[in-house]
Nucleic acid binder design. Sequence first.
RNA 1: GCUCCCUUCGUCUAGUGGUUAGGACACCGGCCUCUCACGCCGGUAACAGGGGUUCGAGUCCCCUAGGGAGCGCCA
Length: 469
Amino acid sequence: MTTKTRFAPSPTGYLHVGGARTALFSWLHVRKHGGKFVLRIEDTDLERSTAESVNAILEGITWLGLEYDEGPFYQTQRFDRYNKVIQELIDQDLAYYCDCPKERLESLREQQMQRKEKPRYDGHCRARQIDPEKPHVVRFRNPLEGGVVVDDLVRGRVIFRNEELDDLVIRRTDGSPTYNLTVVVDDSDMEITHVIRGDDHLNNTPRQINILQALGKTPPRYAHVPMILGDDGSRLSKRHGALSVMEYRKQGILPEALLNYLVRLGWSHGDQEIFSLDEMIELFDIEEVNRAASTFNNDKLLWLNQHYIKHDDPARIAHLLSPHLGDLDIDPASGPNLVDVVIAQQERARTLVEMAEISAFFYKDFDAYDEKAARKHLRPVARDVLERVRHVLAEMTVWTPESLHQAVVDIAESLELKLGKVAQPLRVAIAGRAASPGIDVTLHLVGQQACLRRIDKALNYIAQRATEN
RNA sequence: GCUCCCUUCGUCUAGUGGUUAGGACACCGGCCUCUCACGCCGGUAACAGGGGUUCGAGUCCCCUAGGGAGCGCCA
C-alpha cells in the first residue's frame, strides 16, 4: 500500500508555525517513503471558515515548498458523501437520533461537574424512537465496554476505556456533519495510511477508531506530534508573536531556515543542526520525534537564518532581498549591482530586513548620521583626514576595491595614523554609521560621486558642530 | 473535577544500566581586525522531588509535584 499522509487545516486563521511543522513532518514522511501528500481543507465550520484563511494557508505551504500531490479537497463539497455514511450508520443501528434540548445537555453537564465527574452525554436517546421529521441530531453509538488501543508512532501504546467516551454528535440539527465523522470518512476514502497531527487530537483518536471500526474500516497509523509552546510555557498563540508563516517572510526569514528550525524542534539526528531538504527527507523518521512539547526560540531561528543567508547563492539572496529594499523605497537598479552588495553584506545580517537596512546607504544618501557614531568619529580632528581623503579620491581614475584599499593605506601612512583613524571617520561619512563592510568595498560600491558628496557633507557637519560648541 | 500525555543546561536536544552527562542557540571572556559581522579558542549552566530494583540508574518500576491537552450541535 502506498504511503499517504495529509495535512488537514481548518481555515479559521493563518498557517502558524505549529501547523507548518505538522505539515513538514507529514511531508517529510511521505517524501521519504515515496507516497502521496494530500491537502484537505476542513471547512465544515461554516461560521468561522473563510476564503482568506484558505488563501493564507495555501500561500504559506507554497512559500515553504511543501507541495502537495492531491487536493486541496474541501469538506464542504463532500456533504453528500458524509450523509451517505451517516445514513449507513443509522440503518445499521450504529448511530441514532437524539432530540435532547440544549438546556437538558447543559444541566446534565453541570450536574456531572458538581459530582466531579467527566461531563458526557448520558445516552438518554439511545433507545428512544424519534421522529426523523422533527429537529434532531445524530449520535454515534459508541461501544460501552472494552477499550481502544492506539499504537501511536510517537506516543507509543495508549489505551482508552470506552466507558470514558460518550455518544458524540456526528450530524448537527442543521444537517451538517461534525469533525470526528468527516475526518474518519475522508481519511478512509482518501486511503490515508498515516495520520500525523498535533497531539491535541490524541484524545479524539479512540472515538475516530471506534467510528472507523463501525464502518468496517481499518484505522490508519497515527502519529501525534507534541505542540509548540510560547516562551511562557503555554500553547503558542498570537500574543507570543506567534507569527503566521507569512509573517516570517515579511521579517526577512528564508523558508529553508524556518524549515530547518522547525524540523529540529522535537526531532534531532545526533549533533547535526543544519539540514538541507534532501538530508531531512533522508534522515527524518517520524518514530524518532520526541514526546515532549517544545518552546519556540526566535534566537535560534535567527542564527539559522544567518547561516543560510551566509551560505546561499548571492544571486538568490539578492532576488529575495529586492522587495525588502523596495519597502525602503529603494530601487535596486538605481545603484550598485545588488549581487555585489549581497556578497559584501552576507555575513552581517540575520534577516533580509536587516540586510536591506544596512545596505540602504549604497543606494541613497542617508538622512542623518547615527548619533553615537557621528559624535565619536566626525570630530574636528577628523577634518584634516577627510579633506585629505577627499582630495585623493577626487583624483582617482581607477575606482576598484584594490586601488581604494591602497589609497586609504597610503593616506594613513602619510599622516602617520593607524588605519582605523582614517577608516572610521570615512566610514561614518560614507555610510552614516560606524559599521559597514570593509572600507575599500564600501567606497567602491557607493561610487566616486556619492563618496565625494558625502565627504563634503561630513566636512560641513564637522564645521557646523565646531561653531555650535 | 475526570481522562490522556509530558518532565536532561535559560532554550532546542544527545544519551537506550557503568559517560569528567555531549552538541547547538543565547550569555560571558579571549584571539583575529579599518568598524560591524564572520571565524577560531575558552567559560558559566541540566538529569523536577522522593522511594524502590540493581554491584551500579539520567536511563527500569512506583509515588509526589509541576506543565500541557481533551472532556462542544469547534476543528
